[in-house]
Amino acid sequence: MQALISPRAKSIILPTITFIAILAIWEGVSRGFSIPAFVLPAPSRILMGFEAITFSRWMEHVWATLRVALIGYFVSIAVAIPIAIGLTRSKTLADCLYPILVVVQSTPIVAVAPIIIVVLGSQDAPRIVITFLITFFPLVVSTTTGLMATPPELIELSRSLRAPASREFTQIRIPFAIPYIFSALKISITLAVIGAVVAEFVAADKGVGYFIQFSTSLFKLPEAWAGLGVLVLMSLTLFQLVELTQRVFFPWSLPKDAT
C-alpha cells in the first residue's frame, strides 16, 4: 500500500490534504461559533469577497502591484550586481560603500516610504524606489559573497594564464556566484511584493495593497482577505518563476538532491 505512492506524489498529496483540512476546520469553527466576518471570515465568505469587484478590476489591481514589484525588482538587480562586482574588485570602493550600504539596510524602509512619496509624487516612481530599497540589500550581500566564494585555485589559474581581469569575472567569478545570486533573487522577489504593497498603503489609487486598505477602511474584511489571498498567490507564482528560471538555465547550480 505504502509502495504504491511515490515519495514525490506523497510530498504533494500530504500538504494538500493538510491545507484542505485547515480550510474545513476554519469553515466549521467560523460557522459553528458564528464568528463575525470582521474578526475571521469563513473561507466561503472570503471566496465571495472575490466577487465584490469584477475580474477586470482585479486584474487592474494585480497589474498595478505586479508592475511596481517587477520594475523595482529588475532595477534592483541591475544596480546590485554591478555594485557587488565593484565591491569585489576594489577594496577602496568596498571601504567607501559598505558603511553606507549598512546604514541603508538599517533604515526601516517602511518608515521612509511616506517621505519618499512626498518627494517623488504619487506616480509609480516612489513605489518603485521603495521596492528597490527593500530588495536590493540581500542581492548585494549575497552576490558579493558568491563572487568571493570562487575557489582560489581558479583565480590562480586565471592569473597564471594572464587573462584580462574582466574575463576573471565573466568566466569564473560570476558563474560561481550564480547559486548565491539565485538564493538572493528568491528572497528578493517576495520582498519586492512587500515593497510594492507597503508603497500602496502610503499612497495609491490602485493595486492589491490599496484594495486591502480600502476594503478594511469600509469594514469589508472578506474582501480584504481575498486581496491577501491574491497577494499570496502572486508571491508564490513569482517565487516559482525564479526557481524555474534557475532550474531551466542553471541546472548545475541547484543543490544535489533537488535535481
Binding site: 585555485e153 542553471f250 548545475w252 547550480s253
Partner: peptide, 8 residues
Amino acid sequence: QKPTLLPW
C-alpha cells in the same frame, strides 16, 4: 590539489 573544475 583539488580538481577545481567549472561545475557549469
